[in-house]
Nucleic acid binder design. Structure first.
Lengths: 221, 221
DNA sequence: ACCATCTGTATTGGCGCCAATTTTTCACAT
DNA sequence: ATGTGAAAAATTGGCGCCAATACAGATGGT
């Protein structure tokens, strides 16, 4: 097929990073709205509406929706349209279980690589989350939470694992959508964050695993 | 956005399964060719070539390529085209590590649910792989291997986990592409399959985890 | 002989229109 | 009133054309 050898014949020194197009931006925007609940579960995403709302071209709308289908955030029914995926308790539980496996599985790698300054940074992020308990919006808390967990996972030295967990987290955000309502739960989360930092500093793998499991499953051990 | 309430207003009793369109079939075909090596790493996938080779429409080609980009099987460079992803040793190792975490993490679930008939079926699949050592093509072996591992993972009762591992496996198939060349390695794989079945029958979690780790990393413990 | 620039060609990517399908509306019979 | 069926409106999805861009070859200058 197209004998240009094995490609790369005329490669210039450009960075191999594929830049995000307009459709990517639109997909991200829609994903954001779905996660935040602005687009309710089950709501139909008519192409014309999306096109006008984001002043995007029809083609970008289609691509973005197609991308969200692959991310399992929206469902596509041929000749009927796209709609936001509905929460599925069973699915959400399965994904949480996968996250427990992945994130507890990353603990050994984390502890093997963690340095003092990493612990300090993790604690800083945990404290930032705590400080936002008072005067932070739900979005702020969400972001701070993502930042903390992302940083912690990043310490394991496996970018693929981090990316995978990030994707999984995004996949169930809409399914839960109400977990951040209760203040007591958020405070509990913050305490767990700090406990995780302590376990991290102490190098206590077993404790860290226990904390992560409880944190993800949101149940006391 | 489009006040059709929360959707589902006029849902008929149809199954909610989204059927695969032409683009999906094309994407699968291309993925197959990439995995089998028919499409070499780095090779450019010109839209016209794909269009003619599979007698597909231009639009389906674009969608399929876009899908493969998301599956990380091809790389897209704007205004230049799509080409098969090149093997990346570091990435492949990261993905193998993730697989180890996931598949060893599934062991407890597997042992908790496995029944006698499941063990028998797993052994049957392992033996089928072994029998293909003599008179099976590389494709046959590949399929039998997938079938065995897929069945084993399916026993953990978490479809999401199974799907995730299947996707991860597909993501590095091209990066290795040569691991099935050495006959000795295939025979070793078959022995490991049978050892895994034995550990499964014995309910020996630790042994099963050790075998899975060695099997994925392709190194003796 | 070698390098830079320019022209021609091939390929990608965007855009608009129209057919196919579905949903809604409305008229009509029961 | 209620259910049935057909016409109308709205929406999705496909296809072809054309501009924008990159690639290859030719041309000319040093």
């Amino acid at each position: 097929m197209s004998e240009s050898g094995t490609g790369e014949k005329t490669v210039r020194g450009q960075s191999a990073k594929a830049q995000a197009g307009r459709h990517d931006a639109l997909a991200d925007a829609l994903a954001s709205e779905i996660h935040s609940g602005a687009l309710a579960p089950g709501e139909w995403l008519k192409q014309i509406d999306v096109e006008q709302r984001y002043s995007a071209k029809r083609m970008d709308v289609r691509r973005a929706l197609d991308r969200l289908v692959q991310k399992r955030l929206v469902v596509h029914l041929p000749n009927r349209g796209y709609h936001v995926v509905r929460p599925d308790g069973r699915l959400a539980q399965e994904i949480r279980d996968v996250r427990v496996i992945l994130e507890t599985g990353a603990v050994d790698g984390i502890l093997a690589r963690v340095r003092g300054e990493d612990v300090a940074e993790a604690r800083r992020l945990a404290l930032r989350f705590e400080s936002l308990l008072l005067d932070g919006s739900a979005i702020d808390l969400h972001d701070a939470n993502i930042a903390f967990h992302g940083y912690l996972l990043g310490l394991c030295g496996n970018p693929e694992l981090s990316a995978l967990v990030r994707e999984l987290r995004g996949r169930i955000a809409s399914a839960l959508a109400g977990q951040w309502q209760k203040r007591s739960r958020i405070e509990q989360s913050s305490r767990e964050h700090l406990a995780m930092v302590d376990a991290l500093a102490a190098g206590d793998a077993e404790a860290l695993r226990r904390l992560i499991r409880a944190h993800i499953l949101q149940r006391p051990e």
